[in-house]
C-alpha cells in the first residue's frame, strides 16, 4: 500500500443554518460536522461508523463536492478539492464518485438504465457512440448484470440490482476514490452479501480507494482497513480496523460494539440506559458523549477531548480523557 495520502481532510466543519434574520436576530445553527481531520491513503478502505445524526452523510457529501465545508480544508491528491468543486466540478467528478444509500431513489424513474449510465461517459469523458457502447458492456459485466437490462427502467429492478447500477454509474468515469454512503443498508442480507462481494472484487480489479460509510459495524469491519467512529459531528476514535474492533478505547465505540446483534448472542445492554443524543441546537460543553458515558468525570465537561494516539500505537487515535486501556470488548 503506497503511503501518500490520496484524500486529506483538515479540520473540516459544516454548519447548517446560522446567520441572522432581517432584524438581526440570530438564527439557530447546527454543526453537522466539526473539527474533522483524517486522511485516506491510496488503495485503502476507510470505514466511517456512527449512528444517525452523527454527520457521516454530511462528511460524504463534502468529500464528493456536493456540499462545501464552512471551515477547514479538503485536499485530494495535493489539490484543493473545495476550490475545484466550485470551479470545475466535472474534473472532480472524474476522480471522485459517490454511491447513494437508496438505490432506487438515486435513479431517475423516467430514464432507461442506458441513458443513466451514458451520462457520465458523455459528459465527463466525452466518449463517442462506439466507445460508449463498449464501455457500457464492460460496466454491466463488472457489476454482474445482463446487458439486456440496459433498456429497462429503474422500477423494474430489485434493490440489489438497482444498487449495482448505482455502482456501475460511479465506476463509469473510472474514478480513483468512491464514497459509498450506506450502500447496503437498504438491502436484504442475502443481497447485501452479493453487493459487498462485488465491491470487493471491483476494488482489487480497478485499484480503487473506498470511503465506506455505514451504521452497521459488522459490515464495516468486514470491508475496512481503517475505521473512523463518529459521534455528534466529531471523530471519537480512528485507527486500524483490527485494533478498533479488538481493543476499542473510546467508551462509545465499546457501546456500539456491544450493542450489535449477532446470531447466537443475547443482548447485554440494560433496557433503561440513556440513548438520547444531545440537542444539536444546544450542544453540551466538553465531550458530547458525557451524558451517556460510564467513565465520565468533570474533566470531560471542561473542554472537548483532543484526538490522541494510544500508547505504542501512533495510528490509533481516541478523543477521550479516560480511554479504556487494553481491554477487549465483551
Amino acid at each position: 500500500m503506497p503511503e501518500a495520502a490520496l484524500l486529506q481532510i483538515d479540520n473540516a466543519e459544516r454548519v447548517f443554518g446560522g446567520g441572522r434574520t432581517l432584524f438581526g436576530r440570530r438564527l439557530p445553527a447546527v454543526h453537522a460536522v466539526q473539527g474533522i481531520s483524517l486522511d485516506v491513503k491510496k488503495g485503502e478502505t476507510l470505514g466511517v461508523v456512527g449512528e444517525s445524526g452523527c454527520g457521516k452523510s454530511t462528511l460524504a457529501r463534502l468529500i464528493v463536492g456536493l456540499d462545501r465545508p464552512t471551515a477547514g480544508s479538503i485536499t485530494f491528491d495535493g489539490r484543493d478539492l473545495v476550490a475545484e468543486a466550485r470551479s470545475d466540478p466535472q474534473k472532480l467528478a472524474r476522480r471522485v464518485q459517490y454511491v447513494f444509500q437508496d438505490p432506487v431513489a438515486s435513479l431517475n424513474p423516467r430514464k432507461t438504465i442506458r441513458s443513466i449510465l451514458e451520462a457520465p461517459l458523455r459528459h465527463l469523458l466525452g466518449l463517442d457512440k462506439a466507445a460508449r457502447a463498449a464501455r457500457l458492456k464492460e460496466l454491466m459485466e463488472a457489476v454482474n448484470l445482463a446487458p439486456e437490462f440496459l433498456d429497462r427502467y429503474p422500477h423494474e429492478f430489485s434493490g440489489g440490482q438497482a444498487q449495482r447500477i448505482g455502482i456501475a454509474r460511479a465506476l463509469a468515469a473510472d474514478p480513483e476514490l468512491i464514497v459509498l454512503d450506506e450502500p447496503v443498508s437498504a438491502l436484504d442480507v442475502s443481497v447485501q452479501a452479493q453487493v459487498l462481494n462485488i465491491l470487493d472484487g471491483l476494488k482489487a480489479r480497478f485499484g480503487l480507494t473506498y470511503v465506506f460509510i455505514s451504521h452497521d459495524l459488522s459490515v464495516v469491519e468486514s470491508v475496512s482497513d481503517r475505521v473512523a467512529v463518529m459521534y455528534f459531528g466529531r471523530i471519537a476514535e480512528i485507527g486500524p480496523a483490527k485494533q478498533i474492533f479488538a481493543e476499542p478505547r473510546h467508551p462509545y465505540t465499546h457501546l456500539l460494539l456491544s450493542s450489535a446483534p449477532t446470531p447466537g448472542k443475547r443482548s447485554l445492554i440494560p433496557e433503561d440506559a440513556n440513548t438520547e443524543l444531545p440537542d444539536p441546537y444546544a450542544p453540551p460543553p466538553g465531550c458530547a458523549f458525557h451524558a451517556r458515558c460510564p467513565r465520565g468525570t468533570d474533566t470531560c465537561l471542561a473542554a472537548h477531548p483532543p484526538l490522541e494516539p494510544a500508547p505504542g500505537q501512533p495510528s490509533h487515535l481516541t478523543a477521550c480523557y479516560h480511554p479504556i486501556e487494553g481491554a477487549g470488548h465483551a
Partner: peptide, 17 residues
C-alpha cells in the same frame, strides 16, 4: 432535492441539462 439529481450532477451534467 432527490438523490437522482445529485447523481446526475456527479455524472457531469450542467444545471440546464
Amino acid at each position: 432535492r432527490r438523490e437522482f439529481v445529485d447523481a446526475a450532477r456527479l455524472s457531469g451534467k450542467s444545471n440546464a441539462r
